[in-house]
C-alpha cells in the first residue's frame, strides 16, 4: 500500500487521538490531563475535517479558483469550527477549575485529589472514609488529609 497524502493525514489524526487517549489513561496530573484532552480533541477535529476531504479539490468558496474544479465538502469545515469552539470552552473551564483546586488543596495530582474528595465528603456526611481502591505504593504513602483552614 503506497502511502499517499491523505493516508498520512489520517495516520496523523488517529495518532493524535491515540496519543491523547494514552495520556488520559496514564497521567494523574490534572494539567497534563487537560493537555492530553487537547491532543485528543485535535486528533478528532482533524479526523472530522478529513471526512470531507477529496483529493485534488479546491476550497468551497465560489469564484476563488477555476470554475470547473471540484470543491471539498463544506459541511465538515463548518462542523469542525463548531467542535473547536466547544473544545476551547471546555478547556477554559477545566483550567479555571484547576486554578481553584490548586488554591484549595495545593496539589494537582488527581489521585491525591480523589482522596481529599472522599475524605471531605465523608467528613461532611459523617461516615467512615472509604479505603482507596488503588492502594498507594509502599514507599510513597499518601499523606493523611491535613487540617486546612476553610476557604472564605
Amino acid at each position: 500500500m503506497a502511502l499517499d497524502f491523505v493516508s498520512i493525514l489520517y495516520i496523523g489524526a488517529l495518532g493524535l487521538l491515540l496519543l491523547g487517549t494514552f495520556g488520559l489513561v496514564t497521567t494523574t496530573h490534572l494539567f497534563r490531563l487537560i493537555l492530553a484532552l487537547a491532543l485528543a480533541e485535535a486528533g478528532v477535529n482533524l479526523l472530522l475535517i478529513l471526512s470531507g476531504y477529496r483529493g485534488g479539490a479546491q476550497p468551497p468558496i465560489l469564484g476563488f479558483g477555476p470554475q470547473d474544479m471540484p470543491m471539498v465538502d463544506p459541511i465538515p469545515q463548518a462542523l469542525v469550527l463548531t467542535a473547536i469552539v466547544i473544545g476551547v470552552g471546555v478547556q477554559a473551564l477545566a483550567v479555571a477549575a484547576a486554578v481553584r483546586i490548586y488554591r484549595r488543596y495545593g496539589t494537582l495530582d488527581l489521585v491525591a485529589l480523589k482522596a481529599h474528595l472522599e475524605g471531605d465528603l465523608a467528613r461532611k456526611q459523617g461516615i467512615a472514609p472509604p479505603k482507596s481502591a488503588e492502594k498507594p505504593a509502599g514507599e510513597r504513602p499518601l499523606s493523611p488529609v491535613p487540617p486546612r483552614p476553610q476557604e472564605p
Binding site: 465560489l62 463544506p74 459541511i75
Partner: peptide
C-alpha cells in the same frame, strides 16, 4: 480521500444561489 458527497453536493450546487454567500462554509 473520496468520501461520498451527499448533503455537501447539494450545498455546493445551490448554496451560492439560495444563500448568496460566496464562502460556502
Amino acid at each position: 480521500g473520496a468520501p461520498p458527497l451527499v448533503a455537501g453536493a447539494a450545498i455546493l450546487e445551490e448554496g451560492g444561489e439560495t444563500v448568496g454567500a460566496a464562502n460556502l462554509v
